[in-house]
């Protein structure tokens, strides 16, 4: 029995798959200009958010500072992106806004993965009551449009960052549960899974080592795309006024504030809008390309 114990590794084909993935990813990343653009956008937005304190010309403007004598000035040498209604530097606020936005988006995505993936694995592996309960609960959440669910939750909980994260995660986890459940269902009847079962490997080990590993590409693709959509949703909540509360530098909130002064102060709406646009596009392009590169079902159609 010694030989076959090590076999599932090979049966699962993890080794060759990894190599293939790496090769394919390299080719795709360099071949596809849009992938390059997506990667650059994601890196730029991420790094500028991380380095916001160093890059901002006026880091104090991100929160409580005000300058009543410099209100609503157009872009210029001192304020590259102009100033807002309280005379704060919009460039600095966009950089700091990136921190808020990306923090929300990453937290929501990770939290949704942390809730949705284990539930999806369990539901897909065990049929019967457990699966029914988990998936029907997920269905209830899926039945309500994500924006409506997030909106009502955020409005009920009150405007601050943790509540936005909760509201968006509650509406996002079922999507991971759904995908992972479907993948698990098809994987659990693969030969190597059944072989491991017959050898008495514990379900936990099978779920993690053989099934979860195979759902990873899907999760990463879905997660990357999800970051983009979550940024958009978080900005929507901020715009409507149920997201974060002032003076938090949040992009959607900045656009909402600018409406009072439009169209005279075009910079007030344009730059936060561009920030949302470029970040969401970055994650969407990257997610698309990752799907090309990682989806095992796409393997073999190259050339």
């Amino acid at each position: 029995m010694n030989g076959p114990v090590a076999a599932p590794q090979d049966l699962a084909g993890v080794g060759p798959a990894k190599k293939l993935l790496n090769r394919r990813m390299q080719r795709l990343f360099f071949r596809d200009k849009l992938t390059g653009l997506g990667t650059v956008l994601v890196l730029v937005t991420f790094l500028s958010a991380v380095a916001a304190p160093a890059l901002s010309p006026f880091p104090e403007d991100a929160y409580e500072n005000v300058r009543v004598t410099e209100r609503l000035q157009g872009p210029g040498a001192k304020h590259w992106f102009g100033t807002d209604r309280m005379g704060r530097d919009i460039f600095s606020r966009i950089l700091y806004g990136g921190r808020v936005t990306l923090f929300i988006a990453l937290a929501v995505t990770l939290l949704s993965i942390a809730i949705g993936v284990p539930l999806g694995l369990v539901a897909g592996y065990y049929s019967g009551t457990i699966r029914e309960v988990i998936m029907r609960v997920a269905d209830i959440f899926l039945a309500i449009p994500r924006i409506i669910l997030a909106l009502s939750l955020a409005a009920a909980l009150g405007p601050n960052v943790p509540n936005v994260i909760v509201a968006l995660s509650v509406s996002f986890w079922p999507r991971f549960a759904r995908i992972v459940e479907a993948e698990t269902q098809s994987l659990r009847h693969e030969l190597y899974v059944e072989a491991s079962e017959s050898l008495g490997v514990s379900p936990l080990s099978i779920l993690f080592r053989h099934i979860f590993v195979h759902t990873l590409p899907t999760i990463i693709v879905r997660g990357t795309l999800g970051i983009g959509f979550t940024i958009l949703l978080a900005a929507t909540l901020g715009f409507i006024g149920v997201g974060v509360s002032p003076p938090t530098p949040e992009w959607g909130l900045m656009i909402a504030e600018s409406r009072e002064y439009l169209p005279g102060t075009w910079w007030y709406a344009l730059f936060p809008g561009l920030a949302i646009f470029l970040t969401v596009m970055g994650y969407t392009l990257l997610g698309d390309s990752l799907r090309d590169a990682m989806d095992p079902k796409l393997r073999g159609i190259e050339g």
């Binding site: 409580e64 500072n65 005000v66 009543v68 209604r85 309280m86 009150g158 405007p159 006024g241 509360s245 002032p246 003076p247 504030e257 009072e260 002064y261």
Partner: peptide, 25 residues
């Protein structure tokens, strides 16, 4: 915008005195 800006202005100056203000709409 008018009440919001008054709120932000007071918040900014109270912050200098070490007093935190949370704005609720």
């Amino acid at each position: 915008p008018i009440t919001d800006q008054a709120a932000l202005l007071l918040q900014s100056n109270l912050k200098k005195l070490g007093v935190e203000v949370k704005i609720r709409g």
